[in-house]
Amino acid sequence: MSTHSNHPFHLVDYSPWPLTGAIGAMTTVSGMVKWFHQYDISLFVLGNIITILTVYQWWRDVSREGTYQGLHTYAVTIGLRWGMILFILSEVLFFVSFFWAFFHSSLSPAIELGASWPPMGIISFNPFQIPLLNTAILLASGVTVTWAHHSLMENNHSQTTQGLFFTVLLGIYFTILQAYEYIEAPFTIADSIYGSTFFMATGFHGIHVLIGTTFLLVCLLRHLNNHFSKNHHFGFEAAAWYWHFVDVVWLFLYITIYWWGG
C-alpha cells in the first residue's frame, strides 16, 4: 500500500487479535472460577496461553506497522504515548490498593496481633541487607536505561546495545535476589495480615519486574534488528517509562514495608 494519505491517522486493518484477546480473557477468568472451586488449574492455564499468544502476535503486528509500513505518523505516536501514560496510571492505582491495605493494618494493629507491628510471632527482614542491595540494583538499572536512551538519540548503536544489556541483566539479578529472600523468609503468606500484605505487594512488584525485564529484552532484540532510529523509537521509550515506574514503586515498597514496617 502507498504511504501517501491526505490525513495523519492510522485506519487499522482487519485483525483477529481483539477477538482472540477477548476469548483468552474469558477463558482465564472462567479458569479462575474452576481453579477456586475444583482445585483444577487447567482452564486457567489454557486462558493464559491464549492471551500470551494473542499479545505476542498483536504487538508483532504493531511493530511491523510502525517499523516497516511507516504507518506511525506523529499523530499516531501521540496516541500511543497517551495510551502508555494511561496504562502506567492504572498500574499506579493498582499498587495504591496494596499500600492502602498495608497502611490500614500497620497504622493501627488489632489487639489480637498484640497491638504491635510487626505482629507477635513475626520476624521481619533486615532492611539493610539484601533489600538495600535490591534498591541499589534498581536505581542502577535506571541509570543504565538512561544511558541506552541517550545513546539511541545520538544514533550510537553499540552503546545502546550495552546499556540495554546491562539493564536486562540487573533486572534478572533483582529477581534472583528477591526469590532468595522469599525462600529464606521467616514468615509465609499465611502468617497474619503482615505476611499477606507483604507477599501481595512484593509479589506483584516482582511480577512487574519480570514484565518490565521482558519488555526491555524485546526492545534489545528489536534494536539488534535495527528497528529503531534516533527519531522514531517509541517502543523503547515506553519500556523505559515502564521501567522507571517499576523502580519508583520499589522505592515506596522499600521505605514503607521493609524499612518503616519492618
Binding site: 504511504t3 494519505s5 491526505n6 490525513h7 495523519p8 511507516g70 506511525h72 505518523t73 506523529y74 499523530a75 505516536t77 501521540i78 504515548r81 538519540m153 532510529s229 527519531n231 522514531h232 517509541f234
Partner: peptide
C-alpha cells in the same frame, strides 16, 4: 501531522 516519523525530522 501527515509527516511520517523517521529520517531527518525532529523527535516525535
Amino acid at each position: 501531522l501527515t509527516a511520517i516519523q523517521g529520517g531527518d525530522l525532529g523527535c516525535p
